[in-house]
């Protein structure tokens, strides 16, 4: 039996549209569900008091600190490395075997699952380098993890700077580094910041790589050699051990708001960047 193409067309559109709607519905559901259950718990007291009784009661203050400090350290390490890698690849070399290998390595690194980063961070930073479960170990592990994101977004942003700007700069007697410093980086900045935001977003939500490297201490850290617990890890422990579903929802809501805020900022910056280009 042959169905008329017009009907297959209609059927196809229905199925495709249905699939798309389902996907969107799932996204909306996840966010709404968590926010609806969690937001009533979230208030200043929740955010600003320490967890008590393993998190069964009290707030999430120290985990909030952990969630700020760890991604911050990761960015401080990964951003300069990632940006200079991208600048080197786009401005200082032509496409060669070496750059191909570097790009391949970057792409591969981007695909490594976080549990592997966790294992590596544990054996390398925590054990071999003797840094123990600490902010330092966790931050460095996260830095490894977000490096590819920063390299890629920076590369895109740098490539988007018009070639004519470079030509003018060189023709006025600028060296390559002067051109990078005065023309390329300022113009690629919004794109670079987007990459940094995406990196922060990913670090905030990360659990597997953090729990084995930064540990899960609920005490307020006093140095980068102290262990800390991020919101994501705290949430995981609350949810898994069934300690307090109320606090778990509250933590999840805070986490989602933080991640959404950061990603939306990133998109907003990207949008402004594109608008400015055209």
């Amino acid at each position: 039996m042959r169905i008329h193409p017009r009907y297959t067309q209609r059927l196809a559109v229905t199925i495709l549209g249905g699939a798309t709607l389902l996907t969107l519905a799932v996204l909306v559901f996840i966010i709404v569900f968590v926010l609806e259950k969690g937001l009533p718990v979230v208030n200043f007291r929740f955010l600003l008091t320490n967890a008590e009784d393993m998190g069964r009661s009290g707030g999430i203050f120290t985990t909030l600190i952990g969630t700020i400090v760890l991604p911050l350290l990761a960015i401080i390490v990964a951003a300069p490395l990632g940006i200079s890698t991208a600048v080197y690849l786009t401005e200082y070399t032509l496409e060669t075997k070496v750059t191909k290998i570097i790009r391949f390595g970057t792409d591969c690194l981007a695909g490594i699952p976080s549990i592997i980063f966790g294992l590596f961070g544990f054996i390398f930073f925590v054990t071999t380098l003797g840094l123990g479960w600490s902010i330092l170990s966790g931050g460095l592990t996260l830095a490894f993890m977000i490096l590819p994101t920063i390299i890629r977004t920076t590369e895109e942003a740098v490539k988007a700077v018009p070639k004519s700007y470079r030509q003018v700069s060189f023709s006025l007697g600028a060296t390559r580094w002067q051109t990078v410093k005065r023309i390329i980086l300022p113009n690629a900045l919004p794109g670079i910041l987007t990459g940094i935001m995406l990196g922060i977003g990913r670090s905030i939500g990360e659990t597997a790589a953090v729990i084995f490297t930064a540990g899960s201490s609920l005490r307020l850290p006093t140095s980068i050699f102290d262990s800390t617990r991020t919101m994501a890890v705290h949430f995981y422990i609350l949810a898994r051990e069934g300690l307090s579903s109320e606090n778990a929802y509250g933590t999840a809501a805070t986490l989602i708001i933080a991640v959404l805020a950061i990603n939306l900022t990133a998109y907003w910056m990207m949008g402004r960047f594109i608008a400015k280009r055209s």
Binding site: I30, L198, A208, F235, A239, A252, N263
Partner: peptide, 14 residues
Amino acid sequence: IELLAAIPSVVYGF
């Protein structure tokens, strides 16, 4: 949809 990727995996698990 790309925001879906940013939601932490623990939240999906939950």
